[in-house]
Nucleic acid binder design. Structure first.
Lengths: 211, 211
DNA sequence: GCCGTAAAGCGAATTACATTCGCTATTGAC
DNA sequence: GTCAATAGCGAATGTAATTCGCTTTACGGC
């Protein structure tokens, strides 16, 4: 063997990219700029990453995992079903998907511009969906498994939708409405799926934990 | 006045763009190629459209409106609530958002790469959401208006999500699962919202029109 | 400590595009 | 028939990702 990759340089490039993506998004960030910020030449960036899109994935992956894990803790700390679901949906859609630092926008841009040749491992998406399913299932232990999976899937789609529309909106009032809509739907569904267990005379259902 | 824009040339450019976007997506289509296909020079394209993204919008807008209108007719022709909702969701998510000719992918790519300076009128999105709301409301005339609007909104998000993920998947089995999930959720919700009116002894609800 | 070598590092291409410029040719209005 | 606006076009321009070829460095074996 001979000369070895510098851990320091790898870190410089990754951190520079992270900071620039955050500030300017995927498309607004150039390899030249990343290199300059990392203190090297553009061509040397390709010693550490095979392409620009791989840098974006490398930056986004740990960020999303950290946010989801953090969200799991917050959800687990909530007392009732409604609080748990509200925390989950707000955290996922408003805080993470609607993230103002533009990281999900970065990913959306990267994914949208990814060519057929860019191999994007769906591992992160799977992982995320499983985590969301876990949170839902813990909130609704008696829920029908198929329905819970459907909920998780729809939440993932909504996540993508919110991220995509980041690029179109000025204000973020849209996200609040999204959160409201999903929770609206979720609570109706919750009512329906738990209805056989507890139902009052008026025909409306209530859970044992009020918010 | 002097020389006037040729209607024929405008059509040539638009049709060439439509065909190329369909085949290669937004990013895979170049202005040079559009011009060649239209029988003119790249620079002349800019006499008819201010930018590449405007061409994409011009092509996508009438296509989406036609598909949605067509879907409205199909939904209206369905007999029961479940058939109507199934037709709506399948048509919207599998046929239109998951469109194999890649038109929604084209739009997603265009939107994702759109700079802050690109003015994209949200008129089309509003129009689409209103049409979806109309279809849902006609299927569920007794539904709570707020809930119906939430449903329409979530469907729009799912639409975006499906379109975005077009770029990641090889097969389209994912769309079938999406359709299943949404319908699953929808029917639970339907059950819940109609429950106060009709409910049988077992605590499960059923509507008056079975599929 | 020295040497060979694989690989880091880098400046200069290369390639690909969207978009603009300056000029020529056309055509509609008078 | 003349004028003038503008369609049409070939050649820039500018930007950005990625590659190339060369130089320099530093690890492993001796």
């Amino acid at each position: 063997m001979a000369r070895v990759k510098s851990e320091k340089m790898f870190e410089n490039i990754t951190l520079a990219a992270e900071s620039l993506f955050e500030e300017h998004g995927y498309i607004g960030t150039t390899i030249s700029r990343i290199a300059k910020e990392a203190g090297t030449a553009p061509s040397n960036v390709y010693v550490y990453y095979p392409s620009k899109i791989e840098i974006a994935f490398a930056v986004f992956d740990p960020w999303l995992r950290a946010r989801i894990t953090e969200l799991e803790e917050r959800v687990a700390g909530c007392a009732g079903v409604r609080e748990q679901l509200t925390t989950l949906v707000e955290g996922l859609l408003r805080d993470i998907a609607g993230d103002e630092t533009g990281r999900t926008l970065t990913l959306v841009q990267a994914l949208a511009t990814a060519g057929k040749t860019d191999e994007y491992s769906p591992a992160l998406l799977h992982w995320t969906e499983e985590r969301i399913l876990g949170m839902i299932a813990r909130a609704l232990p008696d829920g029908d498994p198929d329905l819970l999976r459907s909920l998780a899937h729809v939440l993932m789609l909504a996540f993508d939708g919110v991220a995509l529309r980041q690029n179109l909106r000025r204000s973020n009032e849209g996200e609040d409405y999204v959160v409201h809509s999903i929770l609206n739907l979720l609570f109706f569904t919750l009512t329906a799926s738990r209805a056989p267990v507890q139902r009052n005379a008026a025909g409306t259902a209530r859970t044992d934990d009020r918010s």
